[in-house]
Computed example of a mutant assay.
Amino acid sequence: MGYGFSRDDVDFLSGAAGRAALAEVDRLELTAATHLRDLEHVRRRYDAAAGALIDTVRLRRRASRKLLGAGEWLFTDDALQQATPTLVARHRARRVSGRAVHDVTCSIGAELVELARVCPTVIGSDLDDVRLAMAAGNLAAARTTAERAVLLVRADALRPVSVGTVVIADPARRAEGRRTNDPAALQPPLPDLLSAYATRDLAVKCAPGLDFDRLDWAGEIEVVSLDGAVREACLWSLGLTQAGVTRRASVLSSSGAVFELTDADADEIAQRPPGEWIIDPDGAVVRAGLVRHYAAKHGLWQLDPRIAYLTGDRVPDGVRGFRVIDRMELREKTLRRELARRDCGALEILVRGVDVDPDALRQRLKLRGDQPYTLVITRIGRAATVFVCTAHRATGD
């Protein structure tokens, strides 16, 4: 759960004395091995402020892997867990660039920072006074308010307090301390949120595992990945998307590259035997249900119509592919003998459509060689099939 921050904590941490104390605490290791020693040191120096200081330093260290330029920000543990990674927030902000926006669940302001860079009017609201105070400090630390003032107000997300704005929302995804994919269990409940802004341009960040079939949603569902990891889904109302688009996959990279695919793209693909390569599409493509669209775009086809693995004679630029060097039925004794013959050591195992535990299988194979290989285990028709492969990444050179 983390430390329970108060407004007094925020005021202290935001002042000159708090900033100096944080700089001192940041020089400590704050590891499991040094925990008791570090805690005793901070308590001797700062007494009741020790918990706020230690948790803030720890949260800042965690945030550095997720939020750019957040080295002087304030967080709560839950707020950091739910905060949108900077590059994902920046991607969403580009879609509403030039519009007046209202983030009705602004929390500690991670989205507001990016919105304020590209939107002329930005409002942030939340019911939590502590998070609002943190947001004000974080916006100042990000230096976005010098050119565009962000109005922060205390308000219930289900009671609209602005007009003429694009509404951005990020309902909390925990119910009774546990993560939930039930739309009605979010805070605020997703059905209530959609009803409150039924006539407004609206974008709602959701967990990618949310059961979208339980929603009556006429707009677009976008699934976003960053550096190969699926980060979120976002619901976009009809006024914020292209006509005819109901699904979108956005594949982002820390390098700045962006690949987008929608269900308006072509999805006609050939039915052919496995090619030279197997490609495992990015998770955003799979979660958005756009595997056939991705295949059509890159001249690929499916190993099986019900399975998300693709195959072809080339690998799309920048994508990791698996060159097929052998194919066999899923028989462990035969597979162990073949991998031993190939001097296999390190083994990556990818599985779809077959009930196989990769870690357990790897242990049973008892590999002792030096060469790295990849197994792609899947179902083609009714047969469980294994492809022995070597992994490569296409560079486009």
Results as ranks from 00 to 15, higher is better:
Asp11Gln: 14
Phe12Met: 00
Phe12Arg: 01
Gly15Asp: 03
Gly15Ser: 00
Ala16Leu: 11
Ala16Glu: 13
Gly18Ser: 04
Gly18Trp: 02
Arg19Ile: 05
Ala21Pro: 09
Ala23His: 09
Glu24Tyr: 14
Glu24Trp: 15
Val25Lys: 06
Arg27Phe: 00
Arg27Gln: 13
Leu30Ser: 10
Ala32Thr: 15
Ala32Tyr: 15
Ala32Cys: 14
Ala33Tyr: 07
Thr34Asn: 09
Thr34Leu: 08
His35Tyr: 11
Leu36Arg: 15
Leu36Ser: 14
Asp38Met: 05
Leu39Phe: 13
Leu39His: 14
Leu39Cys: 12
Leu39Gly: 14
Glu40Asp: 15
Glu40Arg: 15
His41Ser: 04
Arg43Gln: 13
Tyr46Pro: 06
Asp47Leu: 14
Asp47Trp: 12
Ala49Met: 11
Ala49Glu: 12
Ile54Glu: 03
Ile54Pro: 01
Ile54Asp: 00
Asp55Trp: 10
Val57Trp: 02
Val57Phe: 03
Val57Arg: 01
Val57Gln: 01
Arg58Glu: 08
Arg58Ala: 07
Leu59Asp: 02
Arg61Glu: 06
Arg61Tyr: 10
Arg61Pro: 08
Arg61Gly: 11
Arg62Gln: 14
Arg62Ser: 13
Arg62Gly: 12
Ser64Lys: 11
Arg65His: 14
Arg65Gly: 11
Lys66Ser: 02
Leu67Asp: 00
Leu68Cys: 14
Leu68Pro: 04
Leu68Asp: 15
Gly69Ser: 06
Ala70Met: 07
Ala70Val: 07
Ala70Cys: 09
Gly71Lys: 02
Trp73Arg: 12
Trp73Glu: 07
Leu74Trp: 01
Thr76Ile: 10
Asp77Gly: 11
Asp77Ile: 08
Asp78Cys: 00
Asp78Arg: 14
Asp78Lys: 09
Ala79Val: 02
Ala79Lys: 01
Leu80Gln: 08
Leu80Met: 11
Gln81Ile: 13
Pro85Ser: 05
Leu87Asp: 06
Val88Tyr: 02
Ala89Glu: 07
Arg92Trp: 03
Ala93Asn: 01
Ala93Cys: 04
Ala93Val: 03
Arg94Val: 11
Arg94His: 13
Arg94Tyr: 07
Arg94Asn: 12
Arg95Asp: 04
Arg95Cys: 06
Arg95Gly: 00
Arg95Asn: 03
Val96Met: 03
Val96Ser: 04
